[in-house]
Amino acid sequence: MTQNEPTDPEPTLPPAVIACAIIGAVVLVATSLNENKSFGTWLYDYQTLITGVLAVIAAVATIWQMRASDALQERHAFRGDIIAVKRLRAFLPGAAREYADNLRPYAGDENSPNPFDRAYNWIQAQHAVERLQDALQGYRVTSCFHLLPSEIFELLEDCKREVESISKLERAREELDLQDPRARERDELYVSTEMERMGKLGAKAAQLASLVDKWAEDFLVETERSHTSHLTP
């Protein structure tokens, strides 16, 4: 999804309205002079006409002000979208790749047989899940929700669901009494399921990084091209 820069010119009062207002004023003044009436008498005689002219001018001025305000808000929103996409591109792809690297040991059979390495990988993976959750819910991501294509948005939601599943499993493990043999069996099952989920999350995080990076680049290039073509006579 790309967005073109607003190309509407600055709202201006229609020339016909300005001309009519000037002509009306000239006619009223000329009429007053020709009839040789006092200002009070002239004002009384033409008060209905004057009121109507002023009402028309006020209505046109209101419409013009509304158009000017709408155009200004549209330009501000457009510039805000550009800033949001640049901010997203500077943050999410790199962060998602880092977290995906921390989760890679659980993708397939890459985990080390060394128990110390396995313990370290587990801690790193847990931290990666927590940081990824914070990243996906942060303002740098949510501020671009209305711009993201459906493919990226759906992948974001998939990552969130995987993170929530891992978090639920970890909370369930914390409630177990490992003195109970049956609880230890359940703990092993929870760990196995978490590892599987972490592997899937790592793959999805890596895919998300690539898609966001490419989309943001295309968005900004297209925006710059649109802006340049708009400025070129």
Rank of each mutant, 00 (worst) to 15 (best):
Y106A: 04
N111K: 09
E35N: 09
V29F: 10
W42S: 11
E98Q: 13
K86L: 13
D101T: 14
R97C: 12
A59D: 00
Y46P: 02
V85Y: 00
E110T: 04
G40C: 09
V53C: 08
A58C: 13
F39W: 14
Q65M: 11
F78Y: 15
L92D: 02
A95H: 04
W122Y: 12
D81H: 07
E130M: 02
V29P: 03
V26G: 01
V56P: 01
I63A: 15
G108K: 08
A96L: 03
E151M: 05
N121I: 07
Y106I: 02
D101C: 12
R87C: 03
H127D: 10
T31I: 03
A125H: 04
L147I: 00
F78V: 00
L28C: 07
Y46T: 13
T41V: 12
V141N: 06
C144H: 00
I23A: 13
R140Q: 06
V26H: 01
R104D: 06
A55M: 03
N34W: 07
E74W: 05
A25D: 10
A128M: 06
V27F: 05
A119W: 12
G80Q: 11
L103A: 06
G138E: 14
P105N: 00
A25G: 11
L88I: 10
R118H: 05
N121P: 02
Q126I: 08
V53H: 05
